[in-house]
Simulated assay, not measured.
Amino acid sequence: MEIKEDQELIKIDQVDEKIISLLNEDGRMSYRKISRELDISVGTVHNRVEKLMKTGVIKKFAPIIDHSRLGYKLTAIIGVRVKGGLLKNWENRTAYHKNVLAVYDVTGEYDAFLIAKFKDTNGLDEFVKGLLKEPDVQRTYTQTVLNVVKEDLGSPKML
Rank of each mutant, 00 (worst) to 15 (best):
G27L: 05
M29A: 04
D111C: 05
G56D: 05
K88N: 06
V49E: 03
K133G: 01
G123Y: 06
G56W: 05
G71W: 00
L146K: 03
N122I: 11
P156I: 14
F61Y: 12
R81V: 10
Q138F: 08
N99P: 11
I58A: 05
I40Q: 04
R93T: 12
G27A: 09
K117M: 03
I10Y: 07
L132I: 14
N147V: 11
V82Y: 06
L146I: 14
D39V: 14
D13A: 05
P63K: 05
T144R: 04
D136Q: 14
L124D: 07
L74R: 09
S21D: 02
I20S: 02
F127T: 10
L131G: 09
N92W: 09
S35T: 12
T140D: 04
L146E: 03
G43F: 07
V103I: 14
L70Q: 05
T55N: 11
R139C: 00
A76M: 09
E109T: 15
K119M: 02
N89I: 13
T44D: 00
T144K: 08
E37F: 07
D152F: 01
F127A: 08
V42Y: 13
I3P: 10
V45L: 07
L74M: 01
D6A: 12
E5I: 15
V80Y: 04
F113D: 00
K150D: 00
N24M: 07
L23K: 00
L132C: 07
K157G: 02
V49M: 07
Y96S: 11
H67N: 04
N147M: 09
G71S: 00
K4W: 04
S30Q: 08
K157R: 09
E109M: 06
K150H: 09
Q138R: 13
T55I: 01
V103F: 07
S21A: 11
L153E: 00
